[in-house]
Computed example of a mutant assay.
Amino acid sequence: MKYDDTIGGDIIQTDFFVNEIKPPANYQCFLGAYYRKAVSSKDLWIGIEGSVVLPTLFFDPNRIDLTKPGKYLDNVSVYFGGNSDGQETDIGLLWEIIRYDNGTVSNERLAFRPFMRRTGHSKTGQAAIYQNAPANKSFYWYSNDIVKITLKLVEPGKLKLSVIGSGKSYETIFEANGYQYYNKAEYKRVNAIDQVANEGKPVQPTKTKVFGAKWLEVYLLRMVNSNLVKAVMHPKRFTSMKCPSSNFINVFSYDENSSIENINLSGDCLV
């Protein structure tokens, strides 16, 4: 098979593979948050990788969480994830509290920190779980940082998360039994304004804004003839979702063969 390019030892593929499954034209939005999601087809993907400029956050001062001093009823996440054999994962960066050098913990959320979440896997009895990276300054990232995030199947039932940027790095293995090399899987990238205790419900009105996120490159990972190939996740390779509607999501894509995308989110209409 002839590949499009080789960059720094990586094999890059822009065109579709032979027999590659195309993504659906659309998906129904899941209620509960304002988000931009790009979802691949369900195919023999083994992961996703990308570099992103982290956004600047402006929280609605009227949406204070009265049960948790210093926190808002909105939060912000930038993450990857997938679905394989019915098991959903969300894995990436979440705006979180931090631990100061003196050991005290902030009331406010002040930095992006890695998180990992999976649903249960009914066939093996694996339970749902949520985990965070330790509250350690080595694992904090901030607005305007450029980070490279990689989520890759490295063993049957084991996903490796890697976050690298601004002189810091974090790696972990996250168990998810539904992810097997023989299973067709879909992978996603998501930029979101999450809302506390609102999953599955209509979005709550908010003036929270998240501006300036930019995906510099995104690749779907695939093994072809024993080679790891990075397939450019351009607009023809994903289902585009702007939820709850495009009124709240501003997206600028560069061209149909590029994975570069600028994203702004707002609880106020942007159009």
Rank of each mutant, 00 (worst) to 15 (best):
V190H: 00
A176M: 05
K184H: 06
Q204C: 06
A176C: 08
D194P: 00
G178H: 12
N183Y: 07
K188V: 10
Y181D: 14
D194F: 04
K207I: 09
A197K: 04
E199G: 00
Q180L: 15
A185T: 09
A176K: 02
G212I: 05
G178Q: 10
T208W: 08
K188G: 05
A176W: 01
Q204T: 12
Q195N: 11
T208F: 07
G212P: 05
V190Q: 13
Y181G: 03
A197Y: 14
K188F: 13
K207A: 04
G212M: 00
R189P: 01
N198E: 06
K184F: 06
G178E: 12
G178T: 08
Q180V: 05
Y187N: 14
E186T: 01
N191T: 04
A185W: 06
Y182D: 14
Q195R: 01
N183E: 11
Q204V: 15
R189I: 13
P202I: 07
Y179G: 13
V203M: 09
V190A: 05
Q180G: 01
V196P: 00
P205A: 04
N183Q: 11
A192C: 12
T208R: 00
A197C: 08
F211W: 11
T206G: 10
N177Y: 10
A176G: 00
A197G: 00
N177Q: 13
P202Y: 06
D194S: 07
K207W: 02
Y181V: 05
F211D: 01
N198M: 11
N191R: 00
I193R: 02
T208G: 01
Q195Y: 10
K184V: 11
V210Q: 12
V196S: 06
Y182C: 09
N177M: 10
K184Q: 13
R189E: 08
N183T: 09
A176S: 01
N198K: 05
P205R: 05
P202G: 05
N177C: 08
V203R: 00
P202D: 08
Y182T: 12
K188L: 06
K188T: 09
D194I: 04
K201H: 10
G200P: 04
Y181R: 09
Y179L: 15
A176D: 02
P205N: 08
Y187A: 13
A176R: 02
Q195H: 10
Y179P: 08
P205V: 07
D194G: 03
I193Y: 00
D194M: 05
A192E: 15
E199H: 02
Y179C: 10
E186S: 05
A185L: 05
Q204N: 13
A213M: 09
P205C: 07
V196A: 10
N198A: 11
K209A: 07
G178M: 08
G200L: 07
A192I: 13
Y187T: 14
E186G: 02
R189V: 13
Y179A: 11
Y179S: 04
E186H: 01
E186M: 12
V210G: 10
V196Q: 12
Y187C: 12
A185D: 07
N198V: 08
K201M: 15
G200Q: 10
A176L: 06
A197E: 14
P202W: 10
G212K: 04
K201L: 15
Y182Q: 15
A213R: 02
A197S: 14
N198T: 07
K201D: 11
V190Y: 07
K188S: 05
N183R: 08
Y179W: 15
Y187Q: 13
V196T: 06
R189Y: 09
T208E: 08
G200T: 04
P205D: 03
T206M: 10
Y182P: 00
A213K: 03
P202S: 01
I193L: 09
